[in-house]
């Protein structure tokens, strides 16, 4: 910043800009069913956007790279699907218990994983997630390769019939917006400020009296909980919980979404999720470039290329680059949204 701005003013301006962005986002998304856009695509993107925001809470604000976040998405999906199908629970209760299971798992895994930092943290979370992958592959209630299929969407609070795509869409939208706003609130709370301090300089934060491990564990549990909310919602939307959601490729995908959108930015993960889900659904139909047809079998390679390109040349991500560009043009504006 060129001219020092009082912190309170910066924070207020930042909050105003977030509120503006939030209202615009909510308004645009609310119009989707009337705009002729395929709502199932947007629902999928919204579930992944919430997943990516949860992941960004840990990576972008806590500085912890988890390479096993699929275990929270997948576990919540399985528990939610099982509750809805085998126990016949209504959707709101199934989603709640799915989210709760991810939260508990997050607490258990977090206690172990935060014992090491940096690269080790990434390897440990990856290995623990792989352990759960094999567990879900073998345990009977997940139905192995088939997954839990034909999960009933049910009636929300006994009133709204979710088999209607429009009703389902607005339910997903409300869940996403609530989760998104909650994550913004967490990031901009005193807790978020302390977390930021620990990421920037852990020894200094500890010397100031902050219990760094407790904050990191809390961030891990919160991130797991919101990832679980996304996974449980996804299971109801697609009436399916499968091994795809606990596989390491899913953990890699959420890293990519946050990287593409911009880690440590509020709107970045949402943008990243829409971009990646968009690319995948375009490719699933096959993309024709002249005489060359690029089909879904190239998704892995293209994902890898985007990874490499982002790391080498585009580390701020889409939203991060945009904020940096604005910063250069108008040096007075607050840096973070």
């Amino acid at each position: 910043m060129a001219t020092p701005t009082p912190v309170a003013m910066t924070a207020a301006a930042g909050a105003r800009r977030f509120a503006l962005g939030f209202v615009v986002l909510a308004g645009v998304l609310a119009l989707v069913p009337f705009a002729g856009i395929y709502p199932v695509f947007v629902m999928k993107a919204l579930c992944f956007a919430l997943f990516a925001c949860a992941f960004n809470l840990l990576l972008g604000y806590g500085g912890l790279l988890s390479f096993g976040h699929a275990m929270f998405l997948g576990t919540a999906g399985y528990v939610c699907a099982h509750a809805a199908k085998a126990w016949g629970w209504p959707p709101e209760a199934a989603i709640a218990v799915g989210t709760l299971s991810a939260m508990l798992l997050g607490a258990a895994v977090g206690v172990i994983a935060i014992r090491r930092q940096g690269i080790y943290f990434a390897m440990i979370t990856l290995a623990i997630a792989q352990m759960f992958y094999f567990f879900y592959l073998q345990t009977p209630f997940t139905h192995g390769e088939d997954g839990i299929q034909a999960v009933p969407r049910g009636r929300l609070f006994g009133l709204v019939d979710l088999t209607s795509t429009t009703a389902m869409y607005y339910t997903v939208l409300v869940i996403f917006l609530a989760g998104f706003a909650a994550i913004y609130r967490i990031v901009h709370s005193p807790f978020g400020a302390a977390l930021n301090a620990i990421r920037e300089n852990e020894p200094r934060a500890i010397s100031l009296g902050y219990d760094a491990d407790r904050y990191k564990l809390m961030a891990f549990v919160l991130s797991a909980t919101f990832a679980g909310l996304a996974g449980a919602t996804k299971a109801i939307v697609f009436e399916l919980a499968s091994l795809t959601d606990v596989h390491w490729t899913m953990s890699g995908e959420v890293v990519l979404m946050v990287l593409v959108g911009g880690m440590g930015t509020i709107f970045g993960p949402v943008v990243g999720a829409f971009v990646i889900v968009g690319i995948e659904s375009y490719l699933s139909a096959g993309l024709t470039l002249g005489s060359v047809v690029i089909g879904p079998e190239w998704v892995t390679v293209i994902t890898g290329v985007i990874f490499v390109a982002c790391v080498l040349a585009f580390r701020r991500g889409i939203v991060g680059e945009w904020l940096a560009w604005r910063q250069r043009r108008r040096p007075g504006t607050p840096p973070d949204t």
Partner: peptide, 24 residues
């Protein structure tokens, strides 16, 4: 000069590319 995590992310991308190409 960057955070070591970028090396992990880069090599993860390379792994996806190599495995994807051979798969296809």
């Amino acid at each position: 000069k960057l955070d070591h995590l970028y090396g992990l992310l880069l090599t993860f991308g390379l792994a996806l590319i190599i495995q994807g190409v051979f798969n296809n």
